[in-house]
């Protein structure tokens, strides 16, 4: 699971109002090289919740992302490469996503999060 996907997931338990971002319990992190595409990154920048990405990357052991961003930084090659690495190349392979409100644990196994709910959570 890429951090981009972590950025698109929130707790889906019935009644939860503050389900984003999911906390990460890290078992195993893998890095996979992905072709760099600046246009794609600029496009995704507007769609990503920055704070969640920064926290997520820290949880996976990457501390290079700046806490504060502005769109002018998208002109910087250095920034784009860091953004690229955090967003696409870091994967949570084993671990869990934790609902920030209820503490409910959604397992991540072989890089795939399981968001299926029990009957009493729907």
């Amino acid at each position: 699971m890429r951090l981009l996907t972590h950025n698109m997931l929130s707790s889906n338990i019935k009644g939860v109002t503050n389900g984003f971002p999911l906390r990460m319990e890290v078992g195993k992190v893998v890095e996979k090289t992905v072709d760099f595409n600046a246009d794609f990154l600029r496009n995704m920048f507007a769609k990503v919740e920055w704070n969640a990405l920064v926290e997520g990357s820290k949880a996976l052991g990457y501390f290079e992302l700046p806490d504060n961003v502005e769109s002018s930084m998208l002109e910087s090659d250095e920034f784009l490469h860091k953004f690229h690495h955090a967003l696409l190349e870091l994967h949570l392979e084993q671990g869990a996503l934790i609902c920030p409100e209820t503490g409910r644990r959604f397992p991540v196994s072989k890089g795939i999060p399981n968001m299926l709910l029990h009957e009493d959570e729907v």
Binding site: L9, S10, S11, N12, F20, K32, K110, I112, P113, M115
Partner: peptide, 29 residues
Amino acid sequence: VRVTQETIEAHGCHVELVITDIASGLEKR
């Protein structure tokens, strides 16, 4: 979802996968 992952990898692609009902957990974001 596991089978999809194997199919994707066999073709050298990458697709992010989530086990869920329809788009539950993804709809909001």
